[in-house]
Nucleic acid binder design. Structure first.
Lengths: 197, 197, 197, 197
DNA sequence: AATGAATGAGTCTTCATTCAT
DNA sequence: AATGAATGAAGACTCATTCAT
């Protein structure tokens, strides 16, 4: 909150070089508000106010309110091109930790909260979350396979390890925020590595 | 205009022996609807319709809509009196699995989904979720200590194991529903036991 | 249920030259209705109907119903800049009568009725009424002092005269309406002048 | 407030000697609440709660809510049998002052506030207020005629004096409450006597 | 593209009133 | 007479959405 520039000027103002553009400002505002109070609880008028644009303009860029959420999810939770996994054979914990730090999410913490919160009610958000989770699992599995060539035999356990780690990675913030209990991905990585080692 | 409101009213029907009671029917309906579409998206009128009671009666029992949610959380997510943990020394996986099957939650899956979904926006729900999580962590830790007397030395790792397992337990349904990826508590129990063993 | 609310909207008609403006029309309607049936007994929908605007527009200009009353009191019961009191020495009755005709109230009779009726329950209205009364008392006292320089010695009686006259002025309409008994400010002015003369 | 006995017992309880009776307790509660917040703003449920009786019982005694107000006005604002006016010839001020102290109103201050507040909207209340005012005017006129036999010639001025004094008497509390300005009936009596003297 | 007044369906909530017990 | 659950009409207020300018 308070991070967005307020724009009090009227129409026709020349675009400032540092002006991120109206559409972007609207999305910035929506991201902040959806993460804070949730999609349902955020009136479009509030988005407009925080973005510093007139109410009607939001509907110029996003004909329906849901389009704002869809755009946010589409544009701000990209699954990045798979970076190479640097796996040192034998160092499963390190491989997972590195994965954690390169989450294939260009998503801000705010976007991650939005993903969880709205997945329940909005199919497109749920799809995106599912795909993200799948991608993380895939990479965790791959990292573990690289780090522990000998463990390949126990595919089932490896899968469980990958799924568990993915869950921890994606949910860590929600977990902390909702339950008040911290969970440290690195420690979990270490635990899992031990289980497989 | 300016005159007195004229209103008509009628009294209720006799209570059937198998009737669980109006208040219970309202809570049943609310549980179903909140779990399905969420608290915000569920009009009180819808609760009344599903419960088979007139709209006004919902407010007779629950003066504010939020009171329905609070009652649900208060009455249907009880942390049960700690049952004895049956821990066979050496069998950490079994101890955790048994814990999973005796979740100190009298909560239905629906209630668990409600807990997560609404914890974000409703403090009292969040409190309850935090307490539940804390309780599960405590019991998991205790179960592990009983099952693995020798592991007591590594308190930190034990804690990570407990926290991870609690997260999996509480979130399993949300995880599955939101991401489409199943996570099997028993397999995770086995994984964790291996890590500590 | 659980889906997004679909709504339809339409935009407003062009403004006629003789159109006093929507906000003004709403206030006009509210003034009439509040004076007639009272604030509590007037639904906002009724205000909208009389003003010829859709229900929602009332809330566009006045977010809460009470804001309509407050705006009415703020904007339509102005205490005018003190006009000169024309006092002919010796003519106290005339001075008071002239004061009566220049009540420092731009308030219509309707607004005066509203002031009394709602002062009971709405602090801001009560404040305004108190200030008006104070102003009238002040002017009545001043007028009497100018008209009766010799009476200045008896300050207490002059004060009682001013207070009584102010009460009659402010309440005359309510008195008549509520009790059915007319009270003529000029006659009271004459009576009071006699008492001081 | 707090002056009414709370009755928590159930039906069939023997009537205590000091028990004023259910009907009376309901009226007591209503008087307090109507004077405090007004008739419209007082739910019948609130009356029942303050009276310490179940909601349904209010409607047993008073089938419609308005009947409570009507009963209050009928039974608690009696115009007393005219007491003799003690008028000392020549002492008009004293005659009026004595009248003020024997207001032909057995009404409590609370009832007087109710009379004014609800007269606007409820015909029967307005009637009663009109009759009271008429009675006070009549007595004031009579008192003045007795005290100032010589003033009889000026009937019009005497009438104005009576009307003004009646207004002050009836409205004194409302005036003070609404405007914050005190008005002293004795001082007004003195003023009026001077005008006629 | 920009603006904000206009629209009205929908939501929560209140409350007088009835009636079986 | 006593009790409180039951009923539903009405009212305040919200908000996505449209459109003239």
């Amino acid at each position: 909150m308070g991070s967005l520039r307020q724009r009090s000027g009227r129409a026709g103002r020349p675009r400032d070089a540092s002006d991120p553009g109206t559409r972007t400002r609207i999305l910035d505002a929506a991201e902040e508000l959806f993460a804070g109070g949730g999609y349902e609880a955020t009136p479009t008028a509030e988005i407009a106010r925080l973005a510093g644009v007139p109410k009607g303009l939001v509907f110029h860029y996003f004909p329906k309110k849901i389009d704002v959420l869809v755009a946010l999810v589409d544009e701000r939770t990209l699954v990045e091109e798979a970076p190479e996994v640097e796996a040192v054979p034998g160092d499963a914990a390190g491989a997972l930790s590195r994965l954690a730090r390169r989450l294939p999410l260009s998503a801000s913490p705010a976007m991650r909260r939005i993903l969880f919160r709205e997945a329940d009610t909005h199919g497109s958000v749920r799809d995106r979350l599912g795909r993200l989770n799948g991608e993380i699992i895939r990479r965790a599995r791959f990292a573990l396979e690289l780090a522990l060539p000998t463990a390949r035999g126990d595919a089932a356990r490896l899968e469980v390890a990958a799924v568990t780690f993915a869950a921890v990675l994606l949910y860590q913030e929600s977990l902390c925020q909702l339950t008040g209990h911290h969970i440290d991905p690195d420690a979990v990585a270490e635990l899992i590595a031990h289980a497989l080692g």
